[in-house]
């Protein structure tokens, strides 16, 4: 885990993980650790952890759908100012087709669709960007504090 800026008004932590479902618990551990360090409201922490884990899960499930044994890594960066939390995800998987990113009816029982719904419920904004090299995708989630 690396601290990019470490003062009290602008904090940022970044860590990378192997793109695997077995990494999701490590993503959650990293997130909990950072939120504790950033002193994020305890009521909000687990909701944010869920949103982060769902976004990481979407990378594993969708961006790397055809590459379950990839050795690629994805990165998660959590940045915090007094007013806003910004969570960025970086991966080198299949480019995201924005038009296809939507939740489905629950009867479809597709976890990815419900996961996207959870992210939308928890976060204030969701933006998909092209990643700067070497990254392909860059998802940015924000939450007002």
């Amino acid at each position: 885990m690396s601290t990019e800026v470490a003062d009290t008004t602008n904090l940022s932590e970044k860590k990378d993980f192997l793109v695997r479902s077995s990494s999701l618990k490590d993503v959650r551990s990293f997130s909990r650790e950072v939120f504790e360090k950033f002193k994020i409201n305890e009521d909000l922490r687990e909701e944010l952890v869920l949103a982060i884990a769902e976004a990481a899960q979407n990378i594993v499930k969708h961006a790397y759908k055809d590459y379950p044994d990839t050795q690629d890594r994805m990165a998660v960066r959590i940045s915090c100012t007094e007013k806003e939390l910004e969570i960025s995800f970086f991966d080198k998987g299949k480019p995201v087709e924005k038009s296809k990113v939507k939740h489905r009816a629950i009867d479809d029982v597709k976890p990815g669709g419900l996961g996207t719904f959870f992210i939308q419920e928890i976060m204030d904004s969701i933006k998909f960007k092209e990643g700067d090299k070497p990254w392909i995708n860059n998802l940015v989630l924000t939450k007002k504090l």
Partner: peptide, 16 residues
């Protein structure tokens, strides 16, 4: 202590 959309899907599938 923690459940995500995959866990919810297991519950929905179990009901069906």
């Amino acid at each position: 202590q923690y459940m995500d959309s995959s866990g919810i899907s297991v519950i929905v599938e179990s009901n069906q």
